[in-house]
Amino acid sequence: MEIGLVGLGKMGGNMRERIRRAGHTVVGYDRDPKLADVGSLKELVEALPAPRAVWIMVPAGEATDATVRELSDLLDAGDLVIDGGNSRWTEDVKHAELLKTKDISFVDAGVSGGVWGLQNGYALMVGGEDADIARVQPVFDALKPEGDSGFVHAGGVGAGHFSKMVHNGIEYGIMQSYAEGWELLESAPNVTNVREIFRSWQEGTVIRSWLLDLLVRALDDDEHLSGIRGYADDSGEGRWTVEAGIDLAVPTPAITASLYARFSSRQEDSPQMKAVAALRNQFGGHAVQKES
């Protein structure tokens, strides 16, 4: 089949290549002309046969909003838009309603696989109507890993990105657990080979995972991670997962704690701990460290 792809960065560029390797035609547009097949969204739409399918892989928020709005003016009734970025699921509902006024269909696709997706395939969680998903199923099949797993029609519009949001929230918690375990082992006076301990866990243990494999790779590159600053950003999905837990009255203590740990990583000196230290000094006479 033929499909348009908007956004050819680390994810989108590899996705274009994987789809093409499966024998499909991809017309790609990116603001960087070195990456693009066409010079504009208008040219992309004109290059596709009707009914068209256009996949968006741009940053969540204003970039996605602007792309959806522009496509709503360029596409025709019967065309289809897929948002494969990391949009918040509530935005999917708004985009679907906007496009519906033009009789343009909408599918949201949570995509996981990162820079390894070209080689290993991408896990896909999609939301939308059965008929709309069936139209682009050949592209989903090209992107997903080989075998029967790696793809799910999660439900109606928004269900794909909601599923990906929860996936990333779980990812936060797993990574934080590995990180805490690593620091604990590095701090133990009688443990001398932390990297090989993690390597030994890759087979036969209940905590083996691809994230564990990637941590071992990182330790092979820098055994004590001495070249990495202890700073971790968050891309939004962790916050949204915690907020969804609040909205649905579902406790998410592990995911919430892992998100807060990332916030702590951005502070060279914690203002909160200043207050805690001052209180400990006041009620117990505990010593405080002075600013140099």
Rank of each mutant, 00 (worst) to 15 (best):
G4W: 04
G4K: 03
L5Q: 01
V6M: 08
G7W: 00
L8Y: 01
G9D: 07
G9V: 11
K10N: 15
K10R: 15
M15R: 02
R18D: 03
I19F: 05
R21E: 15
A22V: 12
V27N: 00
G28Y: 12
D30Y: 07
R31M: 07
K34W: 01
K34V: 04
L35N: 09
D37R: 10
G39E: 12
E43F: 00
L44N: 02
A47R: 14
P51L: 09
R52F: 08
A53G: 02
A53Q: 02
M57G: 02
A60K: 01
E62I: 10
E62V: 13
T64V: 14
T64I: 06
T67P: 10
T67K: 11
D73F: 03
D73W: 05
L75S: 11
L80Q: 03
G85L: 03
N86S: 01
R88I: 10
W89R: 03
T90V: 13
E91N: 09
D92E: 10
K94P: 00
K100F: 08
T101N: 09
K102D: 11
S105M: 08
S105I: 00
F106K: 03
G110V: 13
G113M: 05
V115R: 10
V115F: 07
G117C: 05
G117D: 08
Q119S: 05
N120D: 11
L124Y: 03
V126S: 07
G127T: 14
G127R: 14
G128K: 03
D130H: 10
A131H: 11
A131S: 14
D132W: 10
A134N: 15
V136S: 05
Q137R: 13
L143W: 06
K144G: 04
E146P: 06
S149C: 10
G150C: 07
F151E: 05
V152C: 14
G156E: 14
V157D: 09
A159K: 09
S163F: 01
G169W: 00
Y172N: 04
A179L: 08
E180L: 06
W182C: 09
A188Y: 09
N190Y: 11
V191C: 13
N193D: 14
N193E: 10
R195H: 03
F198V: 06
F198G: 01
R199A: 14
S200C: 03
Q202T: 15
E203C: 04
D213G: 02
L214R: 00
L215C: 10
V216T: 07
A218M: 12
D221Y: 02
S226L: 13
S226V: 11
R229P: 00
G230T: 08
A232M: 04
D233Y: 12
D234Y: 15
S235Q: 11
G236H: 08
E237I: 07
T241Q: 09
G245P: 11
I246K: 12
V250T: 14
A254S: 13
I255W: 01
S258H: 04
S258L: 04
L259V: 15
Y260L: 15
A261W: 12
R262G: 03
S265Y: 12
E268S: 06
E268Y: 01
M273L: 15
A277R: 14
A278R: 12
R280T: 00
V288I: 15
V288Y: 06
Q289R: 14
E291P: 05
S292C: 04
